[in-house]
Amino acid sequence: MAELTYRDALRKALADAMTENPDIVILGEEVGRYGGAYGVTKDLIKEFGPERVIDTPISEPSIVGAAVGAAMTGLRPVAELMYVDFLGMTMDQLANQAAKIRYMFGGQIGVPMVLRTQGGTGRSAGAQHSQSLEAYVMHTPGLRLAMPATVADAYHLLRQALERPDPVVFIEHKALYTMKEDVDLGARPPAWGKAAVRRQGKDLVIVTYSRQLHYVMDAAKALSAKGIEATVIDLRTLNPLDFDTIREHVERIGRAMVVSEGAMTAGVAAELAARISEECFDFLEEPVIRVAGEDIPISVSPALESGSVPGPQLIAEMAGRLLA
């Protein structure tokens, strides 16, 4: 066991994978000499050299596009997008190129690249640096999507992403980088694409991912004090989506809530709620509830910012009402 931060775990995953696989290269803005805007790639350039840790100009479309070309010609690139908010800049290369190349070309070749980025609120970073855009990715066939909530998953999901044959978008949460956990990285991780049941309870199922897992766990503790016991499912990856685990628990318990930081309308929570409603209809005692981000841009004001996304209090309150 060792105490690590989420940031340390990500860095260790990159370093360990790069040591094992000489084809892994990192490219992005400030990933080398600066060490990454959030410090994830700190000193990797010293360890692996500038041929493998490549500082780029501020050119997001071509960073992702170069990763596509590198992946098609034998490398395993990790492109870093400093903020997920810049996804729109790169969407042609990600959604029209990386996601479709295997299919359009009849299975001749895949694009084994990882696009590392970070999103979410929590640093008073304003409307263009605080979004949760995972729905854009989840809505695009051909992309895998991982969103680690824990230190152990930051390590294991990134190592697993670097073994996948298809493009993986890997979205970290900016509010989690300094979170610490005692982790045993030698312990066998859950398989890629499997959700983790973080808490077992008989009264309702809460399905979530990324930073909201921690708010849900706080809410579950508060609910428990009132005699309500929640089962908490951390999806870990949104594509593949482990719906079997969701179904198993929802069918047993009959009440479900979905919690996501992304904007409510047409978001990840909407998709999950629709699927649960459709596939588990006969087992539900109440409508599936979405607790998600407001349909508004994120403000710099910390009060408005934290009010724009779910928190433990809202989650606990709505769970309590669902059971009332």
Partner: peptide
């Protein structure tokens, strides 16, 4: 690959160039 997005295939050659170098 051919491309239906004008300019869409251009950055891939930068990546292919990085591969060739490595």
């Amino acid at each position: 690959g051919a491309n239906a997005i004008v300019g869409g295939g251009i950055p891939a050659v930068v990546g292919a160039g990085l591969s060739a170098r490595r």
